[in-house]
Design a protein around this nucleic acid. Structure first.
Ligand SMILES: [Zn+2]
Ligand SMILES: [Zn+2]
Ligand SMILES: [Zn+2]
Ligand SMILES: [Zn+2]
Lengths: 133, 133
DNA sequence: ATTTTTTTTGCAACTAAGTTGCACTTATTC
DNA sequence: GAATAAGTGCAACTTAGTTGCAAAAAAAAT
């Protein structure tokens, strides 16, 4: 399929068989996936999968997501940024198209169809004055 | 010191030497600390530290914090809930007394004295309709 | 089209954070 | 001061991810 080749070329990445396989699997997902899942699904070596994920993130092709599951998840960056709501019981993940600066809880529930929000993470990352100099 | 003993008793926990040592070290901290730090500081076995941390979290004595550093941090739960701002360069952590439902970025900067906020995490955890039944 | 250069791949071995099994010790209860 | 229940520590394990290095594959040069 030409499409997957083009995605790599557009991102100034070499076209290799493992990368095409990765792009293909990533494109078939509607939810963020783990490295472990990709290793199993692509049958590639885990080192290749981890390195390819990093490369894709660096090139802005993928977003890396930490949902406190002890491992990182990845989703294609071709959709607008959003948050996630995670069921602490079954682990199901839903997207929430909410900007950080609006008030949110009812919107989270509306968007996700969840029954209740029992917890959230909101942490900020930046530069202290020392490091910004 | 009677104080540390009482903290354990108030939380319906058995009073043991390792727990007293842990409480003492935790009380001397003004910032969240890692299990690794506590192991080194208390000279207790790492299994004891990890298990004691879990016990303390379960009893509401400690809060567990994930600041995307590949390990969890812990702080005493006797202060009001708040968020954190983390320098992505040097790792310094500041508390931010902000409620989720206000608008925030300038407040984050004011509270923390950081130069800029370049990223944040906002993820929600709860129960989907399936699991709430 | 063949050679050269550069990048990517995959195996094996390693690391860091945290967990599990089990015998031993220490606290609380009687 | 037993008996009972809970906590501790060692060793061995697990899970997610990384590093070194030689072989393979892409792109560039000839
Ligand atoms: Zn659920
Ligand atoms: Zn998403
Ligand atoms: Zn800094
Ligand atoms: Zn704090």
């Amino acid at each position: 399929m030409k499409k997957h080749t083009d995605i790599l070329l557009n991102n100034k990445l070499r076209v290799t068989e493992p990368r095409l396989v990765m792009v293909k699997v990533l494109h078939s997902q509607s939810k963020p996936v783990s490295a472990e899942y990709l290793i199993q699904k692509t049958q590639l070596d885990k080192v290749t999968v981890y390195r390819t994920l990093h490369t894709f993130v660096e090139h802005g092709l993928l977003r890396e997501i930490d949902l406190r599951q002890g491992k990182l998840l990845y989703e294609l960056a071709d959709r607008p940024e959003h948050h996630h709501v995670v069921c602490t019981d079954c682990g199901v993940i839903e997207d929430v198209d909410a900007c950080v600066f609006e008030s949110l809880q009812s919107k989270v529930l509306r968007d996700s169809g969840f029954a209740k929000v029992t917890d959230h993470a909101m942490e900020f990352f930046g530069l202290c004055k020392q490091c910004d100099a």
